[in-house]
């Protein structure tokens, strides 16, 4: 196919386009820069961190930020900067894994519901309604408490809580395209219904789903941190932003603000970054913008 022949240049064009999106909009550029910083921490956290995040030294407990410890130390004398950097890996893993899971399941279920209609639609719709009927964070708490206190279960709980968002969005977008000319044309050129679903409908709603991904990514991080904050999921002494905020909270009253502030700031920036990323991501995956 001529399309495959042209793939090296198509790849170059995609790169050029991505560069345009990142450099064309300062906010998107900033979001991507922050995203890569977080990814860097997640990938090489233990190597970058100046100290061992678990090594306690009560002699230097609760020291304010200094050159030796830019984010200060906690009640056990552990370096907070190291802990914040190392925690990125766990928090990002939970967020990405749960979003990937819900993207695949919710997206497929929603697209099938919108495209096939009928019983598929009713079943998916009622499942989504049932999940929406609960306060989402309480539901996530319940799932983790019932399934067991592990990171895997946090991922599953976060994915389930986000399911309606994905399923409903994908359903609406698929239903709009169900009668589109190119879908009818695909039917006439001998594509089976399943193939139409996967090659005609799904790729065309990816741009919209991409925005949803980055929005829920922020929410997934908050959800995971929130569960740890109330004592579900990750246990101390594992470095994790939610736990660190929870541990630091009791010291704010006594004036040791840095213990809770820095992990909280990391959490806030991560959520902020993912929300900003949404627009940029949409521009990259949308072929209409590529001209």
């Amino acid at each position: 196919m001529s399309a495959t022949q042209a793939s090296p240049s198509a790849f170059a064009a995609s790169l050029r386009h991505a560069r345009h999106v990142v450099t064309g909009n300062a906010v998107t550029g900033l979001a991507f820069a922050m995203f890569f910083l977080f990814l860097l921490c997640a990938a090489f956290g233990p190597l970058i961190a100046p100290y061992d995040p678990l090594a306690s030294n009560t002699a230097i407990a609760l020291q304010p930020p200094s050159w030796a410890h830019p984010f200060g130390t906690d009640q056990l004398g552990r370096d907070i900067l190291s802990r914040v950097v190392v925690a990125a890996r766990l928090d990002m893993t939970v967020a990405i894994a749960s979003v990937a899971l819900v993207f695949a399941l919710g997206g497929l279920a929603g697209v099938a519901a919108g495209f096939f209609g009928g019983w598929t639609d009713r079943v998916v719709g009622r499942i989504a309604d049932t999940i929406m009927a609960f306060p989402l964070f309480v539901l996530a708490m319940g799932i983790v408490a019932a399934l067991g206190n592990t990171v895997t279960n946090i991922v599953i709980a976060t994915a389930i809580v986000n399911f309606p968002l994905y399923a409903r969005l994908a359903r609406a977008e698929a239903a709009i395209r169900r009668e589109a000319g190119f879908v009818l044309a695909a039917r006439l050129t001998g594509n089976s219904e399943l193939r139409i679903l996967l090659t005609q409908i799904l790729p065309n709603i990816l741009p919209i789903m991409a925005v949803q991904v980055s929005l829920t990514m922020g929410y997934a991080i908050l959800n995971a941190a929130g569960l740890s904050f109330i004592g579900l999921g990750v246990r101390p002494p594992t470095p994790e932003w939610g736990i660190m905020v929870a541990e630091g909270a009791s010291f704010i009253v006594s004036g040791e603000w840095w213990v809770a502030l820095f992990p909280g700031l990391a959490l806030m920036l991560a959520v902020f970054c993912f929300n900003l990323l949404g627009d940029g991501l949409r521009d990259i995956v949308d072929p209409q913008r590529r001209s």
Binding site: G181, L188, Q200, N204
Partner: peptide, 29 residues
């Protein structure tokens, strides 16, 4: 039996190149 649709924009998958769109019936049938 084949068909040419009214709206040329709406009847082409935005994510297929022109070549891929033309090849589609041959690939399938």
């Amino acid at each position: 039996i084949q068909m040419v649709f009214q709206d040329p924009t709406d009847s082409l998958n935005p994510r297929y190149t022109a070549g891929r769109a033309i090849a589609d019936p041959i690939l399938r049938l």
